[in-house]
């Protein structure tokens, strides 16, 4: 691989854009394909499949073998709430290779001292979320327990391509949340996107255990089909 190609690949990833690298297995020659240029490529069909499924693959074209390496942006977890669970979630998410952003308008919670080296927005979710570019590689986790803060973020998340939306709170709390969403006209199908009560059902009690159950559920959303089989 040329150093220039490697550099471009890493820059694309930092910019949260997908990229496809085609390498000739015979001689190592390579080219980067931007997702917008797939249609005009001679390997259009396998490139499109790789991008849609996120799976790299070896393909044959004109008697030669090419490896298509698909690179998707890093997963990002947007936490609404600079709370105790979020403090436990940050280092765990990093170990999984995920980026974390924390949003909480309560300046007593959203402090750099409580969240060192984390992207932190001490602002209301409805003001900051539109600028964060919630895409299909972003999970939204609602952890404040406070509808004043959680609900505006939830409304925004439900209109986005976010692959996972989870909300902290008991079944009763979630029941009230669902009622508020229905009043605002959100469909049953849309409301069903919310994972609530948040996290895998594993009896989690401490903030760290709850963070683990949330990250487990996010992983399952990423890797499993809705019926529980492998995606």
């Amino acid at each position: 691989m040329k150093l220039a190609t490697l550099t471009a690949l890493n820059e694309t990833r930092r910019a949260r854009r997908a990229a496809l690298l085609v390498t000739s297995v015979a001689d190592g020659s390579e080219r980067l394909v931007d997702p917008s240029a797939i249609a005009s490529d001679q390997l259009a069909a396998p490139l499109d499949l790789a991008l849609r499924t996120g799976k790299s693959a070896l393909v044959e074209e004109g008697g030669a073998q090419f490896f298509i390496s698909v690179q998707t942006p890093p997963l990002r977890i947007l936490c609404i709430g600079a709370v105790h669970i979020s403090q436990a979630l940050v280092p765990m998410a990093r170990m999984l290779g995920h980026d974390v952003i924390i949003v909480d308008p309560r300046t007593a919670f959203a402090t750099p001292e409580r969240f060192p080296d984390v992207v932190l927005h001490a602002e209301w979710p409805d003001l900051v979320l539109p600028s964060l570019g919630i895409d299909r590689y972003t999970a939204v986790v609602l952890l404040t327990h406070d509808p004043k803060i959680d609900d505006p973020a939830l409304h925004f998340a439900l209109k986005s391509d976010s692959f996972y939306i989870g909300a902290l709170g008991s079944r009763k709390t979630h029941g009230k949340r669902v009622e508020r969403l229905q009043v605002l006209g959100f469909s049953a199908e849309t409301i069903a996107r919310i994972h609530a009560p948040i996290g895998l059902n594993m009896g989690a009690v401490s903030p760290a255990e709850i963070a683990l159950s949330i990250l487990g559920e996010i992983t399952a959303s990423l890797r499993l089909k809705p019926d529980g089989s492998r995606a």
Binding site: L3, L6, T7, L9, N10, R13, Q71, P74, R94, M95, L96, G97
Partner: peptide, 18 residues
């Protein structure tokens, strides 16, 4: 920690530039 294959490519670039 470098947890996934893309982060490993970041290391490859750092190593080569060094």
């Amino acid at each position: 920690m470098r947890a996934n294959d893309e982060d490993i490519l970041a290391s490859a670039e750092e190593w080569r530039r060094a």
